[in-house]
């Protein structure tokens, strides 16, 4: 995710993404949700919709 955004927890606290562009977890397996930690590769997750939908 790139651009002007702010991440918040369900209770509304701001999450520091650590950098201007972040990768969000879509597979549900990340240990650092909502951020991606690359675990989708172990879980064999494939996003529907092709490469550009990420």
């Amino acid at each position: 995710m790139r651009g002007d955004f702010e991440l918040r927890t369900q209770s509304g606290e701001v999450i520091d993404g650590g950098r201007g562009t972040v990768a969000l977890c879509r597979c549900g397996l990340s240990a650092i949700k909502p951020l991606c930690d690359g675990t989708h590769k172990v879980g064999g997750f494939h996003a529907s919709g092709g490469d550009r939908e990420r």
């Binding site: 650590g18 950098r19 562009t21 972040v22 990768a23 991606c36 930690d37 690359g38 490469d51 990420r54």
Partner: peptide
């Protein structure tokens, strides 16, 4: 720990935006 988070981002940028 920083590389876990940062490189999950970088790999997307590198594969799609940079190399693609």
């Amino acid at each position: 720990d920083e590389h876990v988070e940062a490189d999950a981002v970088h790999e997307q940028i590198a594969a799609h935006d940079l190399c693609g």
